[in-house]
Design a protein around this nucleic acid. Structure first.
Lengths: 170, 170
DNA sequence: CAAAGTACATTGAGGGTTCAACTATTCCTA
DNA sequence: TAGGAATAGTTGAACCCTCAATGTACTTTG
């Protein structure tokens, strides 16, 4: 015991700065998004990924990966978006257990009208606060972190099922 | 109209890297915290701030500021923490509308046992992925962002009340 | 080819967060 | 010093996310 390598002063300050910056930035963007378009930021992200996809459609699991969402979360989210008429679900022709989420016209229009204000938020709260060089350094650091974390679940392919409950079903 | 300055390729990549890194890091730490201590990360933060305060006690609103939480959120959170016996609420002697959150012995013990694993997570998922220099650059960038955002609500002192509903109460 | 294993997607319960009231107290000012 | 404005904190409803369980279909293998 006592093996814990605690954070020194510098590290503590770095960690808290990252925590504050992320928390404040996301909650600010979330508030603006909500106010301007009635969408939550995660839902906006889903629409963005769909709009960028071939035919504005994606398999649920691929959409989940792209938007860094669990399957379950995406399922709930798409259900809501479908109620709102922004997305439609179709069954997948090549795999009968799958479904495909499709961006509707209304969904595209909503996204189209939400995007400028969102971009303005990202620009003013993020990019306008950093020099060109800082932007690049931030990106490098974030890419390193994200790459490390993406590699963590390589083994457990389904982030949903918990492999620690191996009891038989009967 | 058409005045939107869209993100160029570099900016887009930066923004998405930041988004991924934050999302993945927080959800990873959240999962670990939950698994190891049954605490959510925001609740852990509350305990940390209390443990650092004079007498392990803080006024609710100050605690809210320190933990970057809304008053409402903190109120709910402290109610939960109180049920769990980790925090106790006392009425404030100098201001009868106020209350003071106090970390209990059990709360301190819980924090004490949760901290090493949490620090380990932060170290392995964040600091171990970055050079010393990258850490410093990340901090500088995050401090700039956080400072900008902290300045935004200077005018509306209560982040709860919405100043856009000025109707009289009778 | 049948059985076992794996992958896709959904569901419901439980907990966390936000927003908009609401109560109670204190501050400010005429 | 009375009355309005501002401040501290709480509450309930609505929404979102996580976790574990379930149903269904594909895939591997003996």
């Amino acid at each position: 015991m006592s093996g814990t390598r605690w954070l020194d002063g510098d590290e503590q300050r770095t960690w808290r700065a990252f925590l504050s910056a992320s928390t404040l930035l996301f909650s600010q963007l979330e508030r603006e998004m909500q106010r301007d378009s009635g969408l939550s930021h995660p839902y906006y992200e889903i629409l963005v990924r769909l709009s960028e996809a071939e035919g504005r459609a994606l398999r649920m699991s691929e959409l989940a990966r792209n938007s860094m969402s669990s399957r379950s979360r995406l399922s709930h989210a798409v259900a809501r978006l479908e109620e709102a008429g922004l997305v439609r679900r179709e069954s997948c022709p090549s795999d009968r257990r799958g479904s495909v989420a499709v961006l509707t016209e209304k969904g595209f229009a909503t996204l189209d009208s939400a995007a400028p204000m969102h971009v303005e938020g990202v620009r003013s709260h993020l990019f306008d606060q950093l020099t060109r060089e800082q932007q690049h350094e931030l990106r490098t650091a974030c890419e390193a972190i994200a790459e490390h974390l993406s590699g963590l679940d390589e083994t457990k392919s389904d982030s949903n099922a918990d492999p620690r409950s191996p009891e038989p079903s009967h």
